[in-house]
Structures are given as structure tokens and as C-alpha cells.
């Protein structure tokens, strides 16, 4: 069982990222949002922690170390998207283009600010879970306090 995880887990990250990208890109059109995308990526990462141990998992992916900053950035991006409206006299959480205005499409990706919001959400959720997993893994696997 654990050997299966050991083999599969490190290889899950790629597909998970692609899945997440798909979920965000198709945006409003179908099931799933930034949150689910984030959790999917985070779960894949969590499996790496389980299989490799926290130290190895982090050494193999140094970018993880940036998780707290990414989380903060994600939150601030989402918040900025939400409160951009009041800057130009619109209510908070006004998304642009506004209701009824036409939208530029790039494939299925619609260029609307809601997507930016979703992206911030995704970044935050992924990173926040990573931080949480990092700490729990250290604790469970006896990392230095």
C-alpha cells in the first residue's frame, strides 16, 4: 500500500496542476472553482509529504518554502479584486466587464475580473494548505520544534 503511494504520489503533482488549471480556465462555465482547484493541488502535495517525508518533499520542491508569501499574495489579490469597485465608485465585488457588457474570450477563458478573483483564491488555498500540511507534517514526523 505505502509503496504504491510512494510511487504514485510524486507523480501526481503534474496531473493535479493541469486539472487545477483546467478548473480555473473553464471558469464559470462548469463545476468547480478556485477553491477546489487549490485543494486538488494541495492534496497532491500532501501525498508527496506522506510518501517522501516532510524534509525530502520540501527539498525536492523548494518553491514550497514560498507558500506563506504566496498565500498572502493570493488573499490580497482576491481582496483587491473584490474592492476594486469602490475605487471607481462602484459597489464592492463589482466584476468587470459588468452585467450585459461584452466579454473577450480566449478559448473558453473569459477575460473577466472574476477569474482574477478565482486565481487569487486558488493561490491562497493551495499555499495555505501547504503551510498547514508543512506544520502538521513536521509535528507528526517529529521535526525540530
Amino acid at each position: 500500500m505505502s509503496s504504491i503511494i510512494g510511487v504514485v504520489a510524486p507523480r501526481l503533482l503534474g496531473p493535479a496542476l493541469i486539472l487545477a488549471a483546467a478548473i480555473i480556465v473553464k471558469g464559470y462555465a462548469d463545476v468547480g472553482d478556485g477553491f477546489s482547484a487549490g485543494v486538488i493541488v494541495a492534496t497532491a502535495l500532501a501525498l508527496r509529504y506522506v510518501s517522501l517525508g516532510w524534509e525530502l518533499a520540501e527539498r525536492s520542491l523548494p518553491v514550497l518554502r514560498r507558500a506563506p508569501q504566496v498565500a498572502t499574495a493570493g488573499l490580497l489579490i482576491a481582496l483587491a479584486t473584490g474592492f476594486a469597485g469602490p475605487l471607481v465608485g462602484d459597489p464592492p465585488f463589482t466584476h468587470y466587464p459588468r452585467a450585459g457588457e461584452s466579454v473577450i474570450h480566449i478559448g473558453t477563458l473569459e477575460l473577466i475580473t472574476a477569474v482574477v478573483f478565482d486565481l487569487g483564491l486558488f493561490l491562497f488555498v493551495t499555499a495555505a494548505f501547504v503551510v498547514l500540511i508543512h506544520h502538521l507534517a513536521r509535528l507528526a514526523q517529529g521535526g525540530p520544534r
Binding site: 464559470y28 463545476v31 472553482d33 488573499l75 482576491a78 481582496l79 473584490g82 465585488f93 472574476a114
Partner: peptide, 26 residues
């Protein structure tokens, strides 16, 4: 709101504020 999945649109647009608070809670 340029969307098709009503639930997703609610989460990101109509009630985006809720979602924002929710992730702040997290």
C-alpha cells in the same frame, strides 16, 4: 454575470464577499 454554473457565479460574483471572508477565515 457571464457565467453558466450558477453556484460558481454565486461564489465568485453575487456572493463573492462571502467567499472572500471564508478564505480569510481559513
Amino acid at each position: 454575470a457571464h457565467g453558466s454554473d450558477v453556484v460558481t457565479v454565486i461564489l465568485a460574483d453575487f456572493r463573492g464577499l462571502d467567499t472572500m471572508v471564508e478564505i480569510t477565515v481559513l
